[in-house]
Computed example of a mutant assay.
Amino acid sequence: MAHAPHQLGQAGEAAAADHFLSLGYEVLARGYRHGRAEVDLVLRLRAELLVFVEVKTRSSGQFGTPETFVSARKKELFRLAATHLQEELDWRGDIRFDIVALTLLNQGFRLEHFEDAFY
C-alpha cells in the first residue's frame, strides 16, 4: 500500500480528525493558515477548550520521541497562528497544543495522541 507523502499526510489528518470527532470534538478547521504558519487541525470541545493539533504521519514506526516531531520554529509559527485565531474568534476559553502521531499499518493507522505536547 504505497502512498505519496502528500497523500499519506492527508490520510493521516483525516484519520486524526475522525479520532477527535469520535471523542466529541468539533473540527473548526483543517489546514488552518496564518502567514507562514499552518495548523493541521483546530478543534473545539464544547465551549471551554480550543485545541491546536500538529499531525505527524509516517509510513513506518521509525519515530523517535514525540517532542522531536515539532521543531522550535514550527512551535513558534503554531503559537502565532493560534494567537491569531483566538483573536479572530474572540476566544476566552482554554487552549491546548497537541501532537497526533500516526503510523501506517496494513489496515489503517496506529494513532498516538499527546495532549499538551508543548506550550
Rank of each mutant, 00 (worst) to 15 (best):
F69I: 00
D40P: 07
R30H: 13
L105A: 15
L85I: 01
F20M: 09
A11D: 04
E115H: 11
R96M: 05
A17Q: 04
V70E: 11
P66Q: 10
S59G: 08
Y25N: 06
F52I: 03
E87K: 11
A72D: 14
E38F: 12
R79W: 07
T57V: 04
Q7E: 15
T65V: 02
L50P: 09
S22Y: 13
L105H: 15
D90V: 10
A29L: 06
L43A: 10
L45E: 06
R46C: 05
V27G: 03
A14M: 15
F52T: 02
F114P: 00
W91T: 05
A2H: 07
K74G: 08
H34C: 00
L28K: 12
G9T: 11
A72Q: 15
I99F: 09
V51Y: 00
G12A: 05
Q62P: 02
S22E: 15
G12C: 05
G93K: 05
Y32T: 04
E67R: 14
Y119R: 13
T83W: 10
T57S: 07
R110Y: 09
F69H: 05
Y32Q: 10
F20I: 11
E76I: 07
T103M: 01
R46I: 01
L43Y: 03
F109T: 09
R110L: 12
F97A: 02
V70F: 14
G35D: 10
A117T: 08
R33S: 03
Q107A: 08
